[in-house]
Amino acid sequence: MKKIIVSFIVALGLISCSNAQKTEFSKEALADKMMSVDGTELTFSDILKNMKEKLLLLMFGPLGVRIASKECQK
């Protein structure tokens, strides 16, 4: 009985570790166009380039995407 339980726990651990998270945005996501507060249209790639070296917090909600940024300390 102990071997079955241990085998189940090990299998569960291996399955949960196999779901690696993506570390890059897809080309489609980088090409998505967004509207800024002042009415200019930017792609997501442009936003990331403008915010380089900053910590970004992207908040997705029913009214759109809100972006908060902070300078990174080295």
Rank of each mutant, 00 (worst) to 15 (best):
Q21H: 06
T23D: 03
L56I: 10
F8T: 15
L30Q: 04
L14P: 01
Q21N: 03
I15F: 12
K49L: 09
Q21K: 05
A31S: 04
F44A: 03
K74L: 11
K52Q: 14
E28T: 11
G61K: 12
D38F: 04
M35R: 06
R66D: 04
F25V: 03
A11Q: 12
K27H: 08
L48Y: 03
K74V: 11
L55T: 14
I67K: 00
F8Y: 13
V10D: 09
I4C: 02
S26K: 07
V6D: 05
I9W: 15
A20G: 02
T23M: 02
L14V: 12
M1V: 13
L55S: 11
M1A: 15
K3W: 15
L56V: 11
K70F: 15
G13D: 11
L55R: 09
G64H: 01
D46V: 01
D32S: 10
A29D: 03
L12N: 15
S7T: 13
V10R: 09
R66N: 03
A11G: 12
E71D: 09
R66K: 02
G64L: 03
K52N: 14
E28D: 04
S36A: 01
I4H: 15
M34Q: 04
M59W: 04
G64K: 00
P62H: 13
K54V: 08
D38M: 05
D46H: 07
S18K: 13
I5P: 09
G61H: 11
E24Y: 05
D38S: 12
S16W: 15
M1T: 14
M34C: 09
G64T: 05
E53N: 15
G13E: 06
A31F: 04
K54C: 02
R66L: 05
D32Y: 01
L30W: 01
T43M: 05
L58W: 04
K49Q: 08
L48A: 03
M59L: 08
D46I: 00
Q21F: 01
K22D: 03
S36P: 00
K74F: 15
V6I: 14
M51V: 03
E24K: 03
K27W: 05
L55I: 11
C72D: 14
V65D: 01
S7V: 10
C17P: 04
L57N: 08
S16V: 14
L12V: 13
A11N: 09
T23V: 07
K2R: 15
S69A: 11
P62T: 13
K27S: 03
K22T: 02
I47M: 00
A11V: 12
T23Q: 02
G64M: 06
D32K: 08
K27I: 10
L12D: 13
S36R: 02
C72E: 13
S36V: 07
I5A: 15
K74I: 10
K33W: 08
K27Y: 07
K33S: 09
F60T: 06
M34H: 04
G64Y: 01
S18A: 12
V65T: 00
G13M: 14
I15R: 10
L55N: 11
L48C: 01
P62E: 07
L42H: 06
Q73M: 11
L57M: 04
K33D: 09
A11F: 14
L56M: 07
Q73D: 10
L63Q: 07
K3V: 15
E71A: 13
C17K: 13
T40H: 10
M51K: 04
